[in-house]
Amino acid sequence: MTEYERSRTMPAQPEHVYDQAANIGQMDSWLPEALHVHAEEPPAVTVHEDRTDHDTAALLRSRHDQMRLEWGTREQGGYSGWLQVAGIGGGASEVTVHLSVFDDDHDPGEKAVGDALDTSLRRLEEQVRLRVDHAAG
Rank of each mutant, 00 (worst) to 15 (best):
P14H: 00
P14M: 01
E15C: 13
E15P: 15
E15Y: 01
A21G: 04
A22Y: 10
A22E: 11
N23L: 11
N23I: 07
I24L: 07
G25T: 12
G25S: 09
Q26N: 14
D28S: 10
L31E: 03
A34R: 08
L35H: 02
H36G: 08
H38R: 08
H38Q: 09
P42S: 11
P42L: 11
P43A: 15
P43M: 15
A44S: 12
T46M: 04
V47W: 00
H48F: 14
E49K: 04
E49H: 12
D50T: 01
D50H: 02
T52P: 02
T52H: 08
T52E: 14
D53S: 08
D53Q: 02
H54S: 03
T56E: 02
A57Q: 12
A58V: 03
A58K: 01
A58C: 05
L59A: 13
R61A: 04
S62E: 13
S62W: 14
S62M: 14
S62R: 10
R63I: 14
H64N: 03
H64K: 00
M67D: 01
M67I: 05
R68V: 10
L69I: 14
L69Y: 09
L69G: 06
E70R: 00
E70T: 01
E70Q: 01
T73V: 06
R74T: 14
E75N: 07
Q76D: 15
Q76T: 15
G77H: 05
S80N: 07
S80P: 01
S80Y: 05
G81T: 15
G81K: 13
W82E: 15
I88R: 13
I88C: 09
G89D: 12
G89P: 09
G90M: 14
G90A: 14
G91E: 06
A92I: 09
E94D: 09
E94P: 06
V95G: 00
T96E: 04
S100G: 04
S100K: 13
S100H: 11
V101E: 00
V101F: 05
V101L: 08
V101Q: 00
D103Q: 07
D104K: 07
D104I: 13
D104T: 15
D104Q: 11
H106M: 04
D107T: 07
P108D: 14
P108K: 08
E110T: 15
E110C: 06
E110D: 15
K111T: 01
A112R: 00
L117P: 06
S120P: 08
E125S: 03
E125W: 04
E126N: 13
E126T: 13
E126G: 09
Q127N: 14
